[in-house]
Structures are given as C-alpha cells and as structure tokens.
C-alpha cells in the first residue's frame, strides 16, 4: 500500500507520537503525561524538532517519549509489557556535551527504521531528565527475542558512537517493575 504523502514530503514507515511528561507532584502520573503531536513525514519531524525545547534545556523531572502511533509510553501498554529497553545512563556533565546529540541520533534511528528487519520490534524511545543523571532508552516489544534485541543494541551502540569499551544493558520491563533495590539485572549486554 503506497502511503499517500503530501506532494514533496518524504513519508516515514510509521506514524510517530511525541509525548511530554512534566513532574507535577500535585497530579497523577498519567495526568502529567501529555501527547504533543503526531507526524508521519521527514519534513514534519524536523518542523516539530525545531519547534520544541532541546532535551538539555528541560527542567529536572521531565521526559520526552517518541512512540509508534498506538503505543503508549508506559510498561503497561500491550506492545511494551513483554518487552524491555536498551538503557543509556549519562553522567551529569554529559547533559551539556552529548545528551542532545544522543537523543537526536536516537530519534533518527527510530524514524529512519535503522534496525533492518528488527525495526518492527522497536516500540519507541524515552529520555529522562534527572538531577542524578539523565537516561535515554530504546524500548522494544519482545524481551525474549535474543536475535532481535541484540541486533538493535549493537546498531544503536554503533550509531551513538559509543566505544567498544562501553557496555550497555537491556532490561526487561517486568524485571524493572519488580526490582528490589536500585539495580535491575541486565538480560542482554552489548
């Protein structure tokens, strides 16, 4: 089915939704989560990206999430609950050096379908701006699919330009949800 894209615009494989979360303690978690907008062309992505605040400029406690249309940025969503995430944890000073670059590269990986046949397993990505250290994660739908998860992890690590000495871990959401203490075990590493 040829996607009917407006003349001159480049259609994406998927329609994507950008979500914004602002930590207002007087409201429920869900009430703090807002859908910003959806897009399905390269041009509309750039129009959005140039219009919104850079992640490094967000106040502590805020998140951006980019998910395929129809998938909500939470573990409970049907497409997330059996999945997990490749997690990038950043040191505090990296907010001003690499955070925005890492996040943009993550967005380009998603909208460009950069993970080959396994791109279909990608659900979305989340960036958390936190005083104790920012985090970026790519969420996939099936934590048990070793081949798909490890392929996505390898390509993602390469796209971020991380050295081979840096190890990143994949955590199943089910483990993160029931973790005891602050450390969640990694199901895979690359």
């Amino acid at each position: 089915v040829l996607v009917a894209a407006p003349l001159g615009k480049h259609p994406l494989q998927h329609r994507w939704a950008l979500w914004f979360f602002k930590n207002d303690k007087s409201k429920t978690w869900q009430a703090n989560l807002r859908l910003v907008t959806k897009f399905s062309t390269v041009e509309d992505f750039w129009a959005l990206y140039s219009h919104i605040q850079l992640a490094s400029k967000l106040t502590s406690g805020c998140d951006y999430s980019l998910f395929k249309d129809g998938i909500e940025p939470m573990w409970e969503d049907n497409r997330n609950k059996c999945g997990g995430r490749w997690l990038i944890t950043l040191a505090k000073q990296q907010r001003h050096t690499e955070l925005d670059h890492f996040w943009l590269e993550t967005l380009l990986c998603l909208i460009g379908e950069s993970f080959g046949e396994y791109s279909s397993e990608v659900c979305g990505a989340v960036i958390n701006i936190r005083a104790k250290g920012d985090k970026i994660a790519v969420w996939t739908c099936e934590a048990e699919d070793r081949d798909g998860v490890t392929h996505i992890g390898r390509v993602y690590k390469e796209r971020l330009g991380l050295s081979s000495k840096v190890v990143i871990g994949y955590q199943a959401h089910a483990d993160t949800a029931t973790k005891s203490g602050s450390l969640t075990k990694n199901k895979f590493v690359v």
């Binding site: 996607v3 480049h10 259609p11 994406l12 494989q13 390269v42 041009e43 750039w46 990206y49 140039s50 590269e105 380009l108 909208i111 460009g112 379908e113 950069s114 791109s119 796209r159």
Partner: peptide
Amino acid sequence: GTRIIYDRKFLLECKNSP
C-alpha cells in the same frame, strides 16, 4: 513487504533543505 528506510545523512540533509 517494503520498508521505508532513511539513513542519517539523508535525514540531516532534509533538515537543511528549504
């Protein structure tokens, strides 16, 4: 089926084209 793929170079070029 077919998959619409864009590499980062192309995506970045689109950002700068009018």
